[in-house]
Design a protein around this nucleic acid. Structure first.
Lengths: 358, 358
DNA sequence: CTGAAAGCGCTAACAG
DNA sequence: CTGTTAGCGCTTTCAG
């Protein structure tokens, strides 16, 4: 309430030195005689001086926070990602500006413009559209961008995501091996990378198994619970319903499970299920199914590392990093110990700690 | 890439006016002749000028973002809260700085100091400790603070939270009415408001029913899954295990359910359960139990509204708002329609859309 | 109605 | 080693 804002000038006067000297002491740059330094430090103490980060940022023409643009923080995958990123940024002295885009291009654009206007230190983004999203504004302001979970083609930047193709291939294969021929697919719009890649991998795997994909078994839409429920419900209203189902992210899985429950169908007895993304509550369910768990922490680490390199000036050509998912064949790994990593996966499962999704 | 930063001066030169005039046009303050205004607007367009928010904030000595301090963004209750708050702030032109405190006082203090140094527009905080947390630094910088979910006694500020006492009373009563006498309690540390109030309400309700609380049936700790699991497990290792269980937040419920599952105990057959907080996946479970759902959206709205009033200069004495929880007697309200609001609740349930927790 | 000028708090040359 | 000074981009008196 005191509205006390001690400035560098007051400290300088108190210590009987110039503001430059105070600045040198406080920022630790440049040499200052020990005695003078002590005097300044004393003044800083007495007055309770704290340099204004605003002034600093303004001076440096760069602020100290990173914008994180994701479609839906309530998706546990995004939550875990945000959590990990926040942690890593905090350790590096940056803070996190959370931007929920709701998968709406306009909102995404507004936020990107905002971050450009704010001279953010960097941006981490899960683009709302593979083809539409543009980082032009932010890149023009000299702000580095890293994509997570998805990529944006118009303005190539560093990116990290899971190997969607391998993971979805494994899920599909899993069902095929158990004799399923009619495999329903509840997926994400193909305008986003994860949606497109997962869907294509599903189709491709079916074709390689000599099965001609039946589009009446496919539902693509927003990766939210409501769509997952509605899509799943509709899949079983047809004359020739699927015997197995694939859900392309955790929210769709949630919706699908609710739809199946509502129809009184049991998993895997009445219908088999293979799902993208692990969530903490999976092991509580009676339905048992195979799950592809994403290496969220690793993804966050890679994103932050790449961003830091860019912030420090790296001018390498954009890199595209793919991390491997882990296949969990029974949704109770910590009870049965049946975690089976994919052959090509070299990362540990963090199943029991983190959610998943895209 | 282009590093293009068009400043107000360039616009002024282009339009053949002074920077003051450009400022007036751009910010819409002060009168400018229509013709001049048009000229300036044209120049703005042509150069693609965007005022630097940093400079603006610096000038105004106040930035445009609000800090949200919560202990754990991975707790669905906090996630939903953050989501709603972000939404409401966005609509008002503010952005959200996410600060995960991990319930660690030191980290909380660091973040509060940071927000003070950054001259945040405001702070919304779920304090890590009812008695320890101090907003001194941030209040001294003239930054308004609102508490959510919990309160902090050292520096009184506006606050919103659920009526913990009424809700926990109802949960306990529910079990008592069903004849349970030995009711276990897995709760939060009493150093935080929600933990203290919920625990006290439990004790009080038992006493009023003529039951002397048995402390061997009580486990208090961090509101995380691991503790919930371990605590629950230990509750049933004793000679006289409880016949019913209360969990004081969603993470504890998750842990408790896993422990019970691991022990092969069914709910409600082997043990009855009453839980604080609703989560989207509850309806998928076979275990059925009563749940107290918090009005998250309303909580967010109240917090943001109170903060806005303070930002606009309100000097009212601090207010303490209590919102009522909704009791859900069967965890499948959308299927059975058995949602039963508490008598004193006047808010609708958002059970099916939002998580819960504290 | 418009321009000139004074900073907001800080850092970084540049002198001394 | 330390002080002086010139801004960073913007808003806002204060004159004209």
């Amino acid at each position: 309430m005191a509205e006390t804002t001690v400035t560098i000038r007051e400290v300088a006067e108190r210590a009987g030195v110039s503001v430059a000297t105070v600045s040198r002491v406080v920022s630790g740059k440049g040499h200052v005689r020990e005695e003078t330094r002590a005097r300044v430090k004393a003044a800083v103490q007495e007055l309770g001086y704290r340099p204004s980060r605003m002034a600093r940022s303004f001076r440096a023409q760069r602020s100290s926070f990173v914008g994180l643009l994701i479609s839906d923080i309530e998706n546990p995958f995004h939550t875990s990602l945000a959590r990990a990123i926040e942690d890593l940024l905090y350790a590096r002295g940056y803070s996190l500006l959370l931007c929920n885009t709701d998968e709406v291009l306009d909102r995404e654009r507004t936020y990107l413009q905002f971050l450009a206007d704010e001279r953010a230190a960097g941006v981490i983004c899960a683009p709302a559209s593979e083809s539409e999203t543009s980082f032009h504004a932010v890149l023009a302001a000299g702000i580095p961008v890293v994509c997570v979970d998805r990529v944006a083609r118009r303005t190539p930047v560093d990116s990290v995501r899971v190997n969607n193709v391998a993971a979805m291939r494994a899920l599909t294969q899993h069902l095929l091996e158990r004799g399923h021929q009619r495999i329903g697919f509840v997926g994400l719009d193909t305008t986003i990378t994860s949606g497109r890649e997962r869907f294509e991998a599903y189709l491709q795997t079916l074709r390689e198994a000599g099965i001609d994909p039946d589009m009446s078994l496919v539902r693509l839409g927003k990766g939210v619970e409501a769509f997952g429920r509605q899509a799943t419900f509709s899949l079983f209203e047809v004359s020739q319903p699927p015997t197995a189902l694939i859900t392309a992210n955790n929210m769709l899985t949630l919706g699908a499970l609710k739809a199946l429950q509502q129809r009184g169908m049991r998993v895997p007895d009445d219908v088999a299920l293979a799902a993208f993304d692990a969530t903490p509550w999976l092991t509580l369910l009676t339905p048992r199914f195979v799950v592809a768990a994403q290496p969220i922490r690793e993804m966050a680490e890679t994103a932050v590392l790449m961003l830091m390199e860019r912030i420090e000036g790296s001018a390498q050509p954009p890199r595209e990093v793919l991390l491997e998912a882990t296949l969990i064949t029974d949704a109770v790994p910590h009870l049965t110990g049946t975690v089976r990593p994919l052959a090509y996966a070299d990362n540990a499962s963090n199943f029991d700690e983190k959610g998943g999704g895209a």
